[in-house]
Amino acid sequence: MVDGLVFSLLGSALAVGLAGIGSAVGVGIAGETGAGVMTEDPNKFGQVILLQALPGTQGIYGLLAGFWVLIKLGLLGGTPVEVNVAQGMQIMVSCLPIAIVGLLSGIYQGKTSAACLGLIARRPGETGRAIILPAIVETYAVLALLATILLLNSIQV
């Protein structure tokens, strides 16, 4: 039971940690460019904050997956469920899609957001289109979260 729980919690930690790192890096990259734009044009705060916040969602998805595991194990109230090693490893592997995709897509979305901040700095009228480009990167984080949830739900504990 102990070993199975360790693997399960490791999966939960990876989902929260790696996706969180991806978001932190992405938000940081976009934030640096955003700060540069706002140094010269503070009126662009609205557009800058929107584009900077976009890579932050991967961290939220990771946290959601992490909580899903904890709920499944009954660690957030209720009776803790017994998991063997095989089940624990299944839970951990289920967490990998959002952990890995969250990490990478967060960074790449941050880079795309930073590039789009350059676009709105020169052409403020293009804000709508500028948001669409990093939002497309988001699609893959959403798909990864969906995969993680479906995988978790398919495991019988």
């Binding site: 640096e32 955003g34 010269e40 350059g118 020169r122």
Partner: peptide, 16 residues
């Protein structure tokens, strides 16, 4: 390269 982000943000405004 991404560390140039702040400067590039400013440059994009100056380019106008």
């Amino acid at each position: 390269n991404t560390e140039y982000g702040y400067l590039i943000g400013r440059v994009r405004v100056w380019e106008s």
